[in-house]
Design a binder for these strands. Structure first.
Length: 390
RNA sequence: GGACAGGUGGGUGAGUGGUUAAAGCCAACAGACUGUAAAUCUGUCACUCCUUGCGAGUUACGAAGGUUCGAAUCCUUCCCUGUCCA
């Protein structure tokens, strides 16, 4: 079911436009995927994501959904799509990021990650195999293998050891995934005529911290898996921005051209075309949604910190160039008021706008690639042409 | 008219002789946020000066006096607020 169709490649930069075909719809790439960790993009409804944003794919998280409400609960209720009433595609992260973000609550061993729940302190062993099982239970369209997202900075030796562990985990996870595929394809339709829904894809994750040789070595080993797509992880963990791009630049060309490339957890709006220029097809990041809730809004004229006093009486729309519901209907002064009043609708309006801004950027990038104009767009963004000076 | 209770920085509210320019919270102002433990977190928040230092000075806890080496804290008088009684 899962298939990546490459439609155009920028001859100058190598930026790609394509389509990801999944059981839950087609996804035009390059794509930005809103993050919906706990079966919800915070402050938004599926209706908002579909009608206002036309998001084609969102993220869910294995660690969080395993702990609450539990993947078996979700399976019983018809899978994650039905559970959260999201008919489109879902990519699930494996919990590898929680190895980084909840580092004080876990212990990494060769077998996997021993997490202590941030909810009740109970202990849970996550293995390459178990995280695949959980993601199968969720019914994810794109599953991620368990990886070790390493902190920055890390020594070359520590990064090498960690990377090799990630590779071993990827092999185990992928073997487990393949086994599941085989079992499922040999399964006959059940008596009531229903079949288990078609299996999602499975992506391994390139690690190697900020060391080019380790990134290359990791990519080479993961290529042997002949996976459906490949991710670049371990970025945006505190390193300088230039390094994140450099590591992407080192890694992406090693990955198969006919398969999608996913850089995990990036980036700022002006960085999106930079990643695409390095051959990246998929990205996700909590910045647009989290920053929205914290009053940091991205616009075509730069960042607006809506809490600043200068917006107190500002009747203008947040971004005059934006056609989202927020910008079409409300003033900056009103948004500022909602923020300070602690009104829930602020989070909704702000998130709606920020995600729309990201998705619009990606749509523009895609159009430029298809029409051979991507280098110009990249140049314009690099010149800060669409951004107001700070 | 009488009896209590009380007046602290923009608000609220700790503090009852000395590490108090005065806790905490709120407001205000500024900032951070990158595969979400986040509707979270951080900083500033009397004024002036400089050699920007856990620096110097000035003003400040209703008002004015007083006690004391030292007072937001103790005493006196006055003003004001609240509750109750006539």
């Amino acid at each position: 079911m899962f298939r990546f169709e490459l439609q155009a490649t920028c001859p100058v930069t190598g930026a790609r436009a394509g389509v990801l075909h999944t059981a839950h719809g087609d996804i035009e790439t390059p794509v930005f995927m809103p993050v919906g960790t706990q079966a919800a993009v915070k402050s938004l409804l599926p209706r908002d994501l579909i009608q206002d944003l036309d998001a084609k794919i969102i993220l869910g998280n294995t660690y969080h959904l395993y702990l609450r409400p539990g993947h078996e609960t979700i399976r019983k209720l018809g899978g994650l799509h039905r559970f959260m009433n999201w008919p489109r595609a879902i990519l699930s992260d494996s919990g590898g990021f929680q190895v980084f973000s909840l580092s004080h609550l876990r212990k990494v061993t060769d077998e996997g990650v021993d997490f202590q729940s941030h909810l009740d302190g109970s202990r849970h062993m996550f293995t390459p195999e178990s995280t695949i099982d959980v993601q199968i239970a969720l019914g994810s369209d794109i599953m991620m293998v368990l990886d070790e997202c390493l902190e920055y900075p890390a020594s070359h030796e520590a990064a090498r050891v960690s990377m090799q562990r990630t590779v071993r985990w990827a092999r185990s996870a992928h073997a487990h995934y393949r086994k599941h595929l085989d079992e499922q394809s040999s399964e006959r339709p059940s008596d009531d005529g229903s079949r288990a829904c078609s299996p999602g894809a499975c992506f391994p994750i390139v690690q190697g911290s900020m060391f080019a040789d380790l990134r290359r070595a990791c990519a080479e080993q993961l290529l042997e898996l002949n996976a459906d797509g490949y991710a670049i992880g371990g970025l945006s963990v505190g390193e300088p921005r230039a390094l994140s791009l450099e590591m992407t630049e080192v890694t992406a060309p090693l990955l198969p051209a006919e398969k999608p490339r996913y850089v995990m957890g990036v980036g700022m709006p002006e960085e999106l075309p930079e990643y695409v220029a390095r051959g990246v097809d998929m990205m996700d990041c909590v910045l647009p949604s989290r920053n929205a809730r914290n009053g940091s809004l991205f616009t075509s004229e730069g960042r607006v910190l809506i809490k600043q006093a200068q917006y107190k009486d500002d009747p203008r729309p947040l971004d005059p160039a934006c056609s989202c519901y927020t910008c079409q209907n409300f003033s900056r002064a009103y948004l500022r008021h909602l923020f300070f009043a602690g009104e829930i609708s602020f989070a909704t309006l702000a998130t709606l706008h920020n995600l729309r801004h990201y998705l619009d950027i990606m749509r523009e990038i895609r159009q430029c690639i298809l029409f051979g104009k991507f280098p110009e767009l990249l140049e314009r963004v690099r010149a800060g042409g669409t951004r107001a000076p700070e």
